[in-house]
Each structure stands twice: as structure tokens, then as C-alpha cells.
Design a protein around this nucleic acid. Structure first.
Length: 186
DNA sequence: AAGCGTTACAACCGCTTCATG
DNA sequence: TCATGAAGCGGTTGTAACGCT
């Protein structure tokens, strides 16, 4: 699977962080044509990405119904309950948490819950802690509280996203979803 | 203020499953 | 029934942001 640069002109595949332009292209294309076969979608949209990469970016980040940040104590409790029931079946667990992706839940589990378990805390202690927090709902996270869906209420309202030139202040590798939707310029 | 360690998240990789011819 | 390609899934890694010394 190694890509040599001079294999052919279309052998070039981009990897790594997505740029704002790529995001816009993908959003725009899906808004107009819908999701389809990801490999052909990537080509048709003119993205130098694999279909796999496009799918992942869309499902985990760009989809308007993706809820980001602020996993609530209620959600945390549910994740722990479902994980106790099903184990690392992240996609199955994610189906019971609307707006959450399997990747997000997996990361949450590994970075926050598993860490505490390794430190010797019991599962029941976690549950009771979560229960407490769920009842008070005062838990605060440092995760930035923004959501694509908050800027794009529904795809139906944004059938096309005309490309706009990037403003100078938008860094090539750092932008918020707000920047993206603002650039759609409606 | 600088350096270093930790945390959280985005993205990639490889394997498995499913659909189709 | 088998082969092939696409999608789905879980594990892992890279890195930016943050906090502490």
C-alpha cells in the first residue's frame, strides 16, 4: 500500500489533519449529492483522500447532528452501563447515545474512565460517582462547547455551500466549525 | 518565561463483515 | 459457492492544548 510519488498522477493521497477547504468541499458535496460510495465520492468531489478517510471525517466531525464536547454525567453513566453489558462494542454503545460517535465514546472511555479504573477505582465507585454527578448536573468539562449542529440546524436548509476565499485570519490547520459555516456565506 | 509531563481528541491502520456479481 | 470491493469496527498513534514545576 505504499505510495510512491511518481507511480501515477492520481496516486497522490493526502493524509493527516483535514484542512478547512477539504471540509468545505466534503460538506458541499454531500449536501448536493448525499452520502454514497465513499471511494467514488472522494474522487468525484476532487478530494485527494481515501473514501475511508472521508467517511470518518464526515461521521465523526462534519455531520450536522454530531454533538461535540460536554459528555454529561447521564451519558457517562449510560456509557459505563452499556460497556459493562457489551464490552468494547463502541458503535453499538454509540447507537444509544444520540449525536455521539463511536470514536468519541471510545476516546472518552480510554482517556477518562479506563484511567480511573487502572488507578484502582472500582466500577461500582464509578457508577455511584456518576450517579451523584448526574443528580446534581454540575459537572464541568474544559472541552470546548461548540457543535456543528448549532451552526447548521439542518442540511436541508443548506443545500449548497458556495466556496469562499479563506480569510487571512483563519489558520490553515486551526478553525472552528463556526468558521466553516460562516464561509458558506448564507 | 521556559521546559516538561499529561490529557484529550482527530485521524490512520488493519481486520472483519457484508453485499453483489 | 466463490471472489471482490466497500463499509464498519476497534485498536493505536500523533499532536495540540493545558497544567505544573
Amino acid at each position: 500500500m505504499d505510495k510512491t510519488p511518481c507511480d501515477s498522477q492520481d496516486a497522490e493521497v493526502r493524509k493527516g489533519p483535514w484542512t478547512m477547504e477539504e471540509d468545505l468541499i466534503l460538506i458541499n458535496y454531500i449536501a448536493n449529492h448525499g452520502e454514497g460510495v465513499w471511494n467514488s465520492l472522494a474522487k468525484a468531489a476532487g478530494l485527494k483522500r481515501t473514501g475511508k478517510s472521508c467517511r470518518l471525517r464526515w461521521l465523526n466531525y462534519l455531520r450536522p447532528d454530531v454533538k461535540r464536547g460536554n459528555i454529561t454525567p447521564e451519558e457517562q453513566l449510560l456509557i459505563m452501563e452499556l460497556h459493562a453489558k457489551w464490552g468494547n462494542r463502541w458503535s453499538k454503545i454509540a447507537k444509544h447515545l444520540p449525536g455521539r460517535t463511536d470514536n468519541e465514546i471510545k476516546n472518552f472511555w480510554r482517556t477518562r474512565i479506563q484511567k480511573h479504573i487502572k488507578q484502582g477505582e472500582t466500577f461500582s465507585a464509578q457508577c455511584s460517582e456518576a450517579n451523584e454527578q448526574a443528580s446534581s448536573s454540575q459537572m464541568s468539562y474544559k472541552i470546548e462547547n461548540y457543535s456543528p449542529s448549532s451552526y447548521l440546524p439542518s442540511m436541508q436548509d443548506h443545500q449548497t455551500f458556495p466556496m469562499a476565499p479563506l480569510p487571512a485570519e483563519v489558520n490553515e490547520n486551526y478553525w472552528s466549525m463556526e468558521d466553516l459555516w460562516l464561509l458558506n456565506g448564507d
